[in-house]
Design a protein around this nucleic acid. Sequence first.
DNA 1: CGAGCGATTGATCGCCATCAAAGTGGGTGG
DNA 2: CCACCCACTTTGATGGCGATCAATCGCTCG
Lengths: 242, 242
Amino acid sequence: MHIRNLAAADPQLADDHSCFGCPVRDLAICNSLTQIELAVFRDSGSKRRLQPGEPLCWEGDEAAYVYTVTRGTLRLSKLLSDGRRQVTGFAFPGDFLGVTMEDEHPFTAEAVSEVELCQYRRSRFDAFVDSHPHIERRLYSAAASELAAARDQLVLLGRKTAAERLASFLLQMTRRSEQSPGKPLRATLPMTRTDIADYLGLRIETVSRELGMLKTSGLVRMVGVHELWVLDREGLELRGAD
Amino acid sequence: MHIRNLAAADPQLADDHSCFGCPVRDLAICNSLTQIELAVFRDSGSKRRLQPGEPLCWEGDEAAYVYTVTRGTLRLSKLLSDGRRQVTGFAFPGDFLGVTMEDEHPFTAEAVSEVELCQYRRSRFDAFVDSHPHIERRLYSAAASELAAARDQLVLLGRKTAAERLASFLLQMTRRSEQSPGKPLRATLPMTRTDIADYLGLRIETVSRELGMLKTSGLVRMVGVHELWVLDREGLELRGAD
DNA sequence: CGAGCGATTGATCGCCATCAAAGTGGGTGG
DNA sequence: CCACCCACTTTGATGGCGATCAATCGCTCG
C-alpha cells in the first residue's frame, strides 16, 4: 500500500484552520489566549468532523487527545457491564472535552448531530498549559462548572419524579438553544428520545408519555420531533421542582 | 458587652496550629507546598472543630472560606424546595472543600461525626493560589477527581437497582476506611441510614432491607450499626454491577 | 410502495415508596 | 443501678410510579 497524503486519505483530518471567525471564539477555553499565544496554539491542533452516530472516543480508551466542540452536539455516556447506559451529559459548541487527570477517557463520546471539533494531542496540550499558567485557571473553571452541573443532575436522578426530570431537562435545554427575541422560548433537542431517557434515568416510553402530558397541559408545543416551544415558562419551572 | 479575646470567646476559633504532625499532611492540597510556603499558608488559616450534626455552611450562603478536612466525616447535601434531600457526597480527612467558581456554597455541609478542619478565608486563599501557580494544578486535580466520582454516582442513581446501589456504596466505603492487614475488609459507616438513603436515592426502609439481604446472604456482617465487615468481597462486587 | 427505525399509545407488572408497628441502644434522671 | 425516653433502625403490609411488554403510528429512504 502506498504512503499517501494523510490529510487527504483520512477523512477525520480536515485541512488546517484559522481561529479567527471561529463560531465559539468567545466561549471556549482558547478565549483566554492572546493573539500570539493563539497562533501557536492553533498550529498544534487540527479540525475534526463527525457524522451523526459516529463515536469520538470510548470509555476506558487511552485519552490521547483533548477537544473543543465548535459545532453540533455530542452525547457523553457510561455503560454498566450488562449494557444499561447512563448518559452523563451532552457537549455543545464551546464545550471542552478533556477534563480528567486519568489516562483514560471517563466516558464514551458520540456525535448526536453533525459535529466539528478542534483536536489537540494531550501531551502537547499539557505542555502548552504548563507554559501558560492562566490556561490552568480556565481549565479549573471548566471543571468547576461541570461539577456544579453534575451535582444538579445528582439531585434530579436521586430525588425528582419523571415529570420533574423532564421539565428540568427542557428548561436546561432552552438555555443552550438559540432564542429569537420576541418569539416564544425554544429548546432544540438534537438527541433521540432514547438519549433523553438515558440522561434522565427513565425509559423512552416514560419520556414520551410525560412529554405528552406537558403538551396536553398546554405548557409546551412540539414543532417536529426535535424542536420544542415553551408556551408557559413559569408553569414549566413549577413542574421542575428545585 | 465587653470586647474580649475572640479566640477564647468563640468556640469555633481554636488556637493556632502547626502543619507538622497534621494527620492529612500527605493527602491534602497543602502537600504540594514547600516548607517555606507552608509556613506562610499555615499562618493564613485557623483550625475549626464541629460537633456531630453541626453545620459548616449552607447551600446558597456566601462562600467566605475554604476548608481542608483533618478529622471526621461531613455530609454534603442539596435540598429541593419541598424538602426532599439529595446527599451529593461525603467529605473525609484529606478532602478539600471549596472547589467552585461561584460566590455561593454549592451545597450544605454538616458534620456527621466530630470534625476538625483547617479554614482559610477564600480571598486570602485565592491570593495565595495566584502567587503559587502549582497549587492551581492541585486544585484542578481535586476538581477532576470529584467530577469522576460524581459521574460514577450519576450511573448509580440513574441505572442501578437498590441492591446494586448499596453494594457499590459499601465497596466505596471500604476504600475510605482503615484496614488491618490479615483482617476482613472493613467499612466504617459514620453516617445514619437516612444519610445513606439520601445519598443512594432510596428510603431508609429500603437501605435497611437490602442490608438485611446482604447479611442473610453471608456477604457482610454488621458489628454495631456503624461498622461492617465484608465477608465475601467478590460476591459484593458482583452485586454492585458496573 | 414497502422496509425499517424512532416515537407514541395502551395494558400489565414489579420494585421500591409509603404507611404502620415493633425492636434496639445510648443517655438522662430518679 | 435501673427505669424511662427518644432517636434510630428494623421488619411487615400495602400501594403507586415508572418499567416492561405489546401494538400502532409516522417519517425517511431505498
